[in-house]
Amino acid sequence: MFKEQDYDVIVVGAGHAGCEAALSAARLGMETCLFTINLDTIAHLSCNPAVGGLAKGHLVREIDALGGEMAKVTDQAGIQFRMLNLSKGPAVWSLRAQIDRMLYKRAMRRSLERQERLVIKQGMVERIVAEGGTVKGVVSSLGVFYAARAVVVTTGTFLKGLIHIGLENFQAGRAGEFPSIGLSDSLRELGLEMGRLKTGTPPRLDSRSIDFSRTTPQWGDDPPVPFSYSTERITNPQLPCYITYTNQKTHEIIRGGLDRSPLYS
């Protein structure tokens, strides 16, 4: 088997977990390699275009205090910042930011590419190699072996991902992306017990077809409060969100379609 390179740490998956894992390992002096199935979807916000919110905002601040990247990237990509729960006690005040998805990805990728000791590779990891109960490295779908003294697996929803839209279903890691099939079996072979979870994401609409005059705009705080303790000022233009409501007709339509919904959610 062709062996390209040895690393201290290999990180499999470049989502929000993988980016922080790779940066922190490299910052602590490790020769690190970050694998992603697609270089163009690094740090992709695959669900809502927002970071933080109740309790989650606390996590982002903690990541920042430990030298992580999420808060700084959020500040570079944020297009609305709002302090939530100010009517309650200070323990539950929490910051939330709306995010420009493209700016977020670009900012995180910039941080990764500027990090010393960190290599980023597009490739699908098919197998984790272990001997005598100790990890030895990974094998890619091209049959290339990469040795590592530690491997961090951060594959999100990609392991045997199966998308459902009504009775239609297809294998995918996320809408429009390859799933990871072999890696899941490899983890099982290493003795890990696995289960199955499901999650969902709503539709995306074209704003040119929305009548915003019949909705209620909600603006962020002015001036916006940044997430990172080291950000001086938010420089992006700020946008509102809009609020509307479902009604009885909506609920009838939902009930009428349930017999063709594979997963109640």
Partner: peptide, 21 residues
């Protein structure tokens, strides 16, 4: 059926995903 969205164009549909953990 939702107010303000009577003529809305869906750019990407909603979906559910199941996966191994």
């Amino acid at each position: 059926s939702i107010e303000g969205l009577e003529n809305a164009e869906i750019m990407r549909p909603a979906y559910a995903i199941e996966y191994d953990f």
